[in-house]
Structure formats: C-alpha cells, structure tokens
Design a protein around this nucleic acid. Structure first.
Length: 580
RNA sequence: GCACCCAUAGCUCAGCUGGAUAGAGCGUUGCCCUCCGAAGGCAAAGGUCGCACGUUCGAAUCGUGCUGGGUGCGCCA
C-alpha cells in the first residue's frame, strides 16, 4: 500500500475526467504530475503540482486548473480538504481514516510493507567489492561492500531480480607478485630466510599460505626456477586469498551470488570475440597515442597499440587494450567481462568502484552501450574514501608501514551492524569519517544507536503491554479500532510511515541506499518525539486504562517497529531487542 | 594541461531529480524526569546554498564560465 501512489492515481484519473469533460484540452501529458509530501507540514499532508505543470501546455491559469481539480478530488471519500496555495499548488488533507488504514496495512503486510513492483522483475547485476585477491579486505573495501550489498537488497525490495557479483582480478601481474611473495613464505616454512624484495607483498597473512604450500608440495618446489612453480603457486595462493576474502565478506554479512574470474576469460576466445565486435563498429583500431599533456615523461616513446575509440563517447583519450608487447591490458578482459554480463541477459548493470577508478567510467559505459546496442545501461557508483578517526586523530594507513586497518579489525572492534550502518550514513560520492569513538557512543549523535534505541524502546513497550494483559500479536493489533489514533502527534508518525513505500522507490531509482538510513533516523526521531509527548499529555501514552484505546496505540508502535525492521533488513543491520 | 567528483548554519551532513518561509545532529542558550527506558524530548539563536551570468511562472537543484579542495590520466589493476 502506497498512499502517495494511490492519491496520484486519483489525481491523474480526475485530470483525465477533466479532459473528457472538455475543461482541459485533451491529450495532455500527465507524466510530470507528482503527489508529494510538502516540505512544510503547514501546507497540508500531500501536495500536487498538477496545476502548475499543466498550466502552460493547457494554456490556462494554474488557479483555474487547481480549482477544477480540487472540486473533483473532494468527491473522493479519502480526501478531507483541497486548497489552492502559493503559485498553484493543490494542498490535500486526507481523512484520518485513510491514514489509520495505513497502520493496518503495515501490520497485515509486516516487513513486506513498502515492497514495490518498480523493477517489474528486470534483471540487475550489481558488481561490487571486486578486491584484488592479494590480501585481506581493508576498510576502503568495506564501504563498497556495504553500499553494494544494501543497494542489491534495496533493488530486490523494489521488485528487481538482483544478482550480486564479484569480479576476481586474477589474470594480471599482481597475482604473479602474490605468487612470488607466497613462494618466499614457502621457503620460510622450510626454515630458509625469505627474501621479500621491493615490490613483493610483505604481509604476515602470507605465512599460512607458505605453510600450506609446504603441506601440499613438500620440498619439491625448493630451488626450482620460477617457470616450474609460478603457475601452480599462483592458483594456489589466489584460491587461499579468495577463501580469506569470502570469510571477510561473510563476517560483514555479505553473500555473493556469482564469482567471476578474469583469468577464466583468457584462452576462451571471449576477449577476441568482444573486441572483434567492437572492431566491426569501428571502435577498435591500431594507432599511436599522444603523450600526456602537462607533464612530459622523459621515457615517453610513441608506440603503435590496439586502441578503443572511447573519445567517441566523450572520453578525453582513446584507451589501449593491448600493451606494446602485445599482452592485454586490464581493459581488454574487462570488455569481455562486461560483454559476458550483457549476454547473460541483464537489463541493468551497476558497478561499485573506488573513487580512484573515476577515469575508467566513460570507457566502460561506452563499451556496454556499444556491445548491447544501447539495450543495457551501466551505472557506476564511485565510492569515496573512508577516513578513520580514533581519539580525534586520523589513523594513517600504509601497507608498507603495516598500519593498514583490515575489515576484520574493524568488525572485531565495533561489530558488523555498526560498520554497515555507518558506511551508509553518507551518499557514496562524499568522503566519510569513521570515528571509532563516535560510532560506539550511545547518544543521538550516533545514528546507529538512535535507530536501534527506538526499536529497543518499541520492544520494551510491547513487553509492558503484554504484561498488562494485551494481545500484542500483529493479527490482533491489526483488528484494533484505529480511529483512536486521532491526535495530530500520532497522525504525524503515521504519515512518516506512509512515506516508506515512496522512499523505497526514490532510493531504488537513484541507486541510493543511504536514503534508507536517513529515513530510519527520521522515523526514529518522530517516534522518540511521540514517546516523550506522553510525558506532558497522558492521552498520548501508549498504554491506557481502556483496552481498545491501548490496542490502537500499540498497533501504531508496532507498525513503527515493523518499518524500522524492514529498513534495517535492507541495510543488513540486525535490529536489537534490548539495549545493554 | 585534461577528465571526473565535491563546495549548504561555527562543526559534521540531509535536501525526495525544478517547487512554497532551505532542514537535521553536534556545539551555544533556556526549559522538561514520582512517569511505557531522560541512553530521551521541547524551544531559541545561527544561512548571500563558493562566485557570476543564463534557462522559466519558479533554481541549492538544470546550463555556461570562474574560484577552492579531492581523485585520476599509455606499456598497473
């Protein structure tokens, strides 16, 4: 049940009635007509811009349209008032019964309340994390992991068919570096001193890999040339790294549907096939790039390479798919990978990337639209940095200094729920401060706590009500006489609940899961406010002498709890029953 | 040099894709506990939405040009 959508349908129907009656010219486009909560509560409960957006195409005064529309809307039993205001807004007030029915809908539908058919079953692929399989996940990956996972959940809630996918970069040079690093640990496991040369990965996490290599291969790889062991060790160690990354993801509550391998694309002809297709579109050619402007590298030599014509899509440079030695660049298998996603029948692709990949956006979008003949859209969400703060100090992270904070460290310190919620308290394209002191603080300043506290308080009230002899099952509460929820303060909270289905669609359309976190904070705030009004006005307390009245009020409390749980469910945060 | 992102209250940030008098939290000031959890709530003060043009009934939001900050820029991924 989406009351805003229902009322918009009503408005559209009445506008069509006005067209049929000849009051408005026929054939007006009603797509821009919106029904929204007004910014200022003083302007009624819902507002429509219909008169203003139609004034020009209809060649009429906004006022005249609004008056005619208002008269027709008033005939609907849900509408209690329709006033023309401002430049031509039509402000609507609904009968309390319409709002009260919303509480019943929440209790009947449970956490399915707010589900939408917006996606209409369209297939969406969300590719996220895709951390290189060369070490454990660290905080920078955590934000992308959380945003991707929450976005996937949000889209599923909004009626899309969602696939969560991880692209394993196991084809490039860095996994060879991993293999060489692991080999040194393998030597170490045999009591030899490892030679961790410049450029190798020094992390301790490779010591168990060396041990495992020893367990599997014994001493057979010792004193052998790289050509003998490299391929095997590379597979072995990337598998171990991926196992570790999967554990990290599981600790964060993220479960992928598909793991795709870059390496698996090599030697299958898929890269060649994708490039051939682009070549037919005249998007692949042999050429020589200009040297980068501004800085003139001394070692620049013009070389002929295989290039992708991304300048045709607004990029500032064509991009090489082959290195000067003929090997593929990272871009080539990525083209094949995205072609593969297109061929798997996805209608929309979403990639969650770190902000350092911003230069990569145009060429990838170009590839997807070219390879799908504009059928498939690719949206790339760039995730900005996370700045860690502890005791007011920035925690400097450096792999070399060994001071980088792993995802596991973070989860062990504050728990997965806090990590997930905090990572969603900013939109993706803004840098985020993760303050260890703040996120565990129990105050309104900490949104995680504040929302959890609302839920805990709701559970506390339900317990008290049960102790007072009330049947607090949803089945029973949904039968409560909700006309008792007539106080303005109560209706205000109900209106907030009414925004939930609308918010789900807005957030899903914009691929903006952070909106859910902000909504929950607002809902929690409204609820705490209502709770406190009971201190001044006894009639607003939830548990009353009259059982019927109590049941109605508890129904509202429970409905708020249901929506909070639904929202937290999308964010992947476990609702707490009790604060400790 | 070029591309992308960001700029909103003293601080940290929202702002529903162009709507009405721009909103929260922190901080400041003043109130509210015999009470369903005060781990809260109410109220006040605080703004040239970086700057300048433009688009239109209407701009924080769209366009162009600046300013400041971040990120990236062939043979890394």
């Amino acid at each position: 049940m989406n009351l805003f959508a229902d009322i918009r349908e009503l408005v559209v129907a009445e506008l069509q009635g006005l067209m049929a009656a000849g009051v408005l010219p026929a054939g007006l486009d009603l797509a821009a007509v919106a029904v929204e909560p007004p910014r200022d509560a003083g302007h009624g409960e819902m507002a429509t811009n219909a008169a203003m957006v139609l004034a020009k195409p209809a060649g009429m005064q906004p006022r005249a349209i609004a008056d005619a529309l208002a008269a027709r809307l008033m005939a609907d039993p849900r509408v209690a008032g329709a006033d023309v205001a401002g430049p031509g807004f039509l402000n609507l007030r609904l009968e309390p019964a319409a709002w009260q029915g919303l509480v019943r809908a929440v209790l009947e539908q449970g956490t399915a309340f707010g589900r939408s058919q917006l996606g209409a079953g369209r297939k969406v692929n969300v590719e996220f994390v895709s951390a290189n399989p060369t070490g454990p996940m660290h905080v920078a990956h955590a934000r992308g992991a959380v945003v991707g996972d929450a976005l996937a959940a949000l889209l599923a809630f909004a009626g899309y068919q969602v696939t969560r996918e991880y692209y394993i970069n196991d084809g490039g040079g860095q996994v060879a570096v991993l293999a060489r690093s692991a080999y040194e640990r393998y030597r170490e496991a045999h009591g030899l001193s490892p030679e961790i040369a410049e450029g190798l990965y020094p992390g301790d996490y490779l010591i168990p890999v060396g041990q495992a290599l020893k367990d599997k291969y014994g001493s057979s790889l010792l004193d052998q040339p790289e050509s003998v062991w490299l391929a095997d060790v590379r597979v072995f160690s990337t598998d171990m790294m991926m196992a570790m990354i999967r554990e990290d993801l599981a600790a964060l509550g993220v479960e992928m549907d598909v793991y795709s391998s870059e390496k698996a694309l090599y030697g299958t002809g898929q890269i060649e096939a994708a490039l051939e297709r682009l070549r037919k579109l005249d998007l692949i050619y042999q050429g020589v790039l200009e040297p980068p402007k501004g800085k003139a590298p001394e070692d620049w030599e013009p070389r002929e390479q295989t290039l992708f014509r991304s300048t045709a899509f607004g990029d500032d440079q064509d991009r090489p798919v082959q290195k000067s030695d003929g090997a593929w660049t990272y871009f080539a298998p990525d083209i094949a990978y995205h072609y593969n996603k297109v061929q798997r029948g996805f209608d929309e692709l979403i990639n969650i990337f770190g902000a350092d990949h911003s230069g990569y956006v145009k060429r990838l979008k170009a590839v997807v639209s070219a390879l799908s003949e504009n059928r498939v859209t690719l949206d790339i969400k760039l995730i900005q940095l996370v700045k860690l703060l502890k005791g007011g100090q920035i925690v400097k992270m450096s792999k070399r200094a060994g001071t980088f904070v792993t995802l596991r460290d973070l989860i062990e310190e504050v728990g997965p729920d806090v990590v997930r919620f905090v990572m969603l308290t900013r939109k993706n394209d803004v840098a985020l401060d993760f303050d260890f002191d703040k996120v565990t603080e129990q105050s309104k300043d900490n949104p995680v706590f504040y929302v959890q506290y609302a839920n805990a308080r709701i559970n506390s009230i339900l317990r008290k009500a049960r102790d007072a002899g009330l049947d607090v099952s949803d089945a029973s509460l949904s039968q409560a006489h909700l006309a008792h929820l007539g106080h303005e303060a109560e209706l205000e909270v109900i209106r907030k609940l009414g925004e939930w289905p609308r918010l789900v669609e807005i957030a899903a359309k914009g691929h903006e899961p952070h909106r859910v976190a902000f909504y929950l904070y607002e809902l929690a705030s409204d609820f705490h406010g209502l709770w406190n009004k009971g201190n001044d006005d006894d009639s607003l307390r939830f548990i009353q002498g009259d059982t019927a009245i109590s049941a109605a009020k508890i129904a509202l409390v429970r409905a708020v709890g249901v929506v909070i749980c639904a929202g937290l469910g999308i964010l992947g945060v476990t609702p707490v029953e009790e604060m400790r």
